[in-house]
Computed example of a mutant assay.
Amino acid sequence: MSSNAYWYIGLSIISLIVLAIALARAKSVRAVFLVLIMTQMAYLIETVIYIYCGSYFYHPGFLKDSTYYDSNMGALASNMLVIPTAALVIAVYRLRLRGIAAAIALIGAIEWLWVRLDLYTLYWWRIGYTAIGLAMYFPLTRIVYNRLHRPVRGVLHSLLLFLCIAPILGTLHIVPIMLFMNRDYAPGLFSDPAHDTTTFASVYYLVMTLIIVTAMKMRRGGAWMKAVVIVLLILAVQGVLLAMGLLHIHARWDPWYYCLFPTCVFLALKPVSARLARGG
């Protein structure tokens, strides 16, 4: 593990401490929902600018076998911890313009320091773009948090449910690949296999999330019957991807893991749908 890793670990620990304090202050499950929703929004933005458009590159020094997967680890630290934690603090403590501006300035200062220390490389991206993006992202946090107070129905309910579930599925999907190289995807969009795999995975987990949200919203059929259908559907998708040469599996446990963890997420998070519908 390189010296860069200690900076990322330190920032992650600080974020986790602040996150725990904010969640304790909120004393509400909607704070957890907000973290998940804002994490997925950060994931979606990062998918476009980082994965597809090559905006920047992280250098945490956690993984030696693949620089791109190592960069992904840095992206996770930012989008799963730092940014959602700041968003939660703004919502829970009801920070207004000055507080939001201070949060943006702090994140900008960290980004500048990371560049100076060669922990992070900017390509076409600029720190000013981060500030502009956060100036839209953070006010939205308060809107979402306040909306979670009230019952949610229809399309908005489906959207918020999707945003709650997707970051869990996405993280559980890509992290084993980065750590164990148990599978790779080959859509042929990028020359680096890790970049190619990350690109396909960024779409794959969204499709799986849509399937799970659809199953949750369906009134007919019991939970366990739907769980079996999800397993069979994922097995069928994996079979098609293998036959097309888009998927290569390198570990015996891989097919079972990728069939079972979405099903477990479905069963564990099914109550989230009802809680969103109730609000509060």
Rank of each mutant, 00 (worst) to 15 (best):
Y68P: 04
I143A: 11
V18L: 13
I143S: 08
V228P: 00
A194D: 07
Y257Q: 10
T121S: 11
T214M: 13
F62D: 10
T197V: 03
I132D: 03
G280S: 08
I165Y: 06
T47Y: 08
N4Y: 05
L134G: 08
F180R: 13
D118W: 07
D254M: 12
H157P: 01
A20P: 06
V207Q: 05
P187V: 03
R183D: 02
T121H: 07
L156A: 07
G108C: 13
L36F: 12
G280E: 14
Q40I: 00
R219M: 00
F162K: 03
Y6H: 07
D254L: 11
T85Y: 12
L19P: 04
L63W: 06
W112T: 11
F162P: 01
I177K: 00
W7C: 02
P255R: 09
Y52W: 14
R220W: 14
L122S: 00
W112S: 05
Q40W: 11
A86C: 15
R275T: 06
M73R: 07
A87E: 13
L76S: 14
A236M: 14
P176T: 12
R252F: 11
L189A: 09
Y50H: 14
I83C: 02
A135M: 03
L260A: 08
L134C: 08
Y145G: 04
E46N: 11
S66D: 05
V32C: 13
L160V: 04
P151C: 06
A227F: 02
N182M: 07
F261E: 09
Y6S: 11
D65Q: 14
A102M: 07
L36N: 10
I13M: 11
L172V: 10
I107A: 06
A42I: 03
Y129D: 11
Q238W: 03
V82Y: 10
R147V: 04
N4P: 05
Y52H: 14
R220K: 13
L117M: 13
L19S: 03
S55E: 01
Y145F: 14
V175K: 12
L63N: 08
V92D: 04
M38W: 08
V203S: 13
S202N: 14
L267H: 04
F200R: 01
A24K: 14
A186I: 04
W114R: 09
I21Q: 12
V92L: 05
V155Q: 02
A166M: 06
A277D: 10
Y185C: 02
H195R: 15
V203L: 15
L106E: 00
